[in-house]
Design a protein around this nucleic acid. Structure first.
Lengths: 133, 133
DNA sequence: TATCTGTTATATGTATTATATAACAGATAT
DNA sequence: ATATCTGTTATATAATACATATAACAGATA
């Protein structure tokens, strides 16, 4: 687990951690059923508070990306990952619309914008071994 | 100016307003040189505080999307819009990477993801009349 | 028994967001 | 000139979010 958080970022630490963990699942660095460090261990290794890690874990659990076994601790969702829910679609639309509008105003062509989207999707699943769906 | 803000949203009001104004510029609803309502007028018509509008205007001015003339008031940047700066690229990368990773984990294919990106870019400039670059 | 797990409770400090009221200097219109 | 409108600045207050700290609980583990 090579996770780095930016303490200077405007993004909250718990959101950064959520992003890093989802990116880990997308890339295959974290596979279904894989155990995650305990909240206390991860907090210590990241140099942040236990409750900040716990908040990230709790939100990821609520969304179905993680499971908490009384015995095995926190693990990556071993069964079906959450699908494209209405909430996720709404978030995707909202953020993409905002990014696309600013990109257009700044003179970024549709091709350039779409190419970046494609490239970053490819980067996200790069390490999965081609089973990226 | 048909702007609606979501008072329930997690997004701050001043950020929502920034998004709506940039989207207005992207779509052509707001053209270079167009005057914007005064901070007090817009605040009243949106039902929010003067300082919240002023914060949005100030940030948009700092980024070069708006200009403040002592005589003409606040207008849409009449000269060259800000280009694709390093800061914007960094923001674009950060947010797209996060969205792409979650989309991939949720089973959204690269094609579906890229198509949404393309569609939302097209929606953003739809009313510009095809001079979208 | 001692230790580790997630979880919950409580408290504190800081920053952000949004509001309110007031005032200033420049420009505009009557 | 007087009154009004402009962006801007100052100050204050309340609510919320973020991050931390300390403590405790029940279940599982060694």
């Amino acid at each position: 687990m090579f996770i780095e958080l930016d303490l200077q970022s405007e993004n909250p630490l718990y959101e950064q951690l959520i992003d890093r963990l989802i990116e880990g699942i997308a890339s295959g660095a974290l596979k279904p059923g894989d155990p995650l460090p305990s909240v206390r261990n991860l907090a210590e290794s990241l140099g942040i508070n236990l409750h900040t890690v716990n908040k990230s874990y709790t939100l990821l659990k609520q969304d179905g990306f993680l499971q908490v076994h009384r015995k095995r601790g926190v693990i990556v969702q071993p069964d079906a990952m959450p699908g494209v829910t209405a909430e996720f679609e709404a978030k995707l639309f909202r953020q993409l619309r905002s990014l696309a509008a600013e990109a257009a105003v700044r003179g970024m062509t549709e091709e350039a914008f779409v190419n970046q989207c494609r490239r970053l999707y490819g980067d996200a699943i790069r390490k999965r071994g081609g089973d990226g769906q």
